[in-house]
Design a protein around this nucleic acid. Structure first.
Lengths: 131, 131
DNA sequence: TTGGGTAGTTACCAAGTGGCAAGTACGCAC
DNA sequence: GTGCGTACTTGCCACTTGGTAACTACCCAA
């Protein structure tokens, strides 16, 4: 049961830091936490900010983040519903690392695209489709 | 076709920086790049360093990283085979951000575990399983 | 001729991810 | 009482992820 007997390392499958890594190293997690780092948001605002996310994935990911204490959910219990999500302290501590990832992706995606093109072209040459 | 017409942002589903984010924000990617940041390694060494990874996922992820230019594959074409993987320059530029994630997970997983326990206990109370 | 050593590849299968669309809840304005 | 607005929840279904195990390739040593 006690997983903390191990030297805590993400390289060890038994250490629950691996679980933590799996949670935070996911596309929707990165985007949601980055969005909430800008400012606290409601469900609808997140839906609009994060292009392409579905209601289902948003709710599902928010629940998981809330469950792990990274996001706080404030429900005013009004009608119509008014629910606000914000980062917890520990969520804030994570968000800067995640935003670094965002920026890296935004600054370097062109180079990745180019490398992919080169690689695929070479691969097509190596394995030419027999006509 | 030209995706760069958009303001490049991971929040836009059409920007290929989103694809880049999806590539780098994955568990095995983070672990492999972090391992290679320590030193260049061969297939077997990576298998040993990254506890729990299968040969299949290792090869698959390495290919994808190579395809995107983050990892360089050096094959000595000897028998028995001797293949070394190392980070490219752009891979190195990414690795520090990824290692920050590793460290965050290692330092904070206990707090996440605790939050999860609290959340689940409350949830069980709210929805008691009818006996 | 058989087995070892390295780096794979392939087939099969179970579980998870994620989209879409329809349904739920509920008090308020009309 | 009908519909609106918000925040979900559910069911269905396709696609992806990822594990296991067996197989390939090649040269060398015993």
């Amino acid at each position: 049961m006690a997983k903390t007997d191990y030297e805590p390392s993400v390289f060890s499958a038994d250490c629950s830091s691996r679980d933590a890594l799996e949670l935070i190293a996911s596309k929707w997690t990165v985007l949601i936490l980055s969005a909430l780092a800008e400012q606290p948001m409601r469900n609808g605002a997140l839906l609009r900010r994060i292009d392409g996310i579905s209601q289902k994935m948003l709710t599902q990911t928010l629940r998981e983040l809330e469950r792990n204490g990274l996001v706080l959910r404030e429900d005013r219990k009004t009608t119509p519903p008014h629910v606000t999500y914000r980062l917890s302290d520990i969520g804030v501590s994570l968000s800067s690392a995640l935003i670094t990832l965002d920026r890296w992706a935004e600054q370097n995606f062109a180079e990745l695209d180019q490398a992919r093109e080169v690689y695929d072209r070479q691969n097509d040459q190596d394995n030419p489709r027999p006509s």
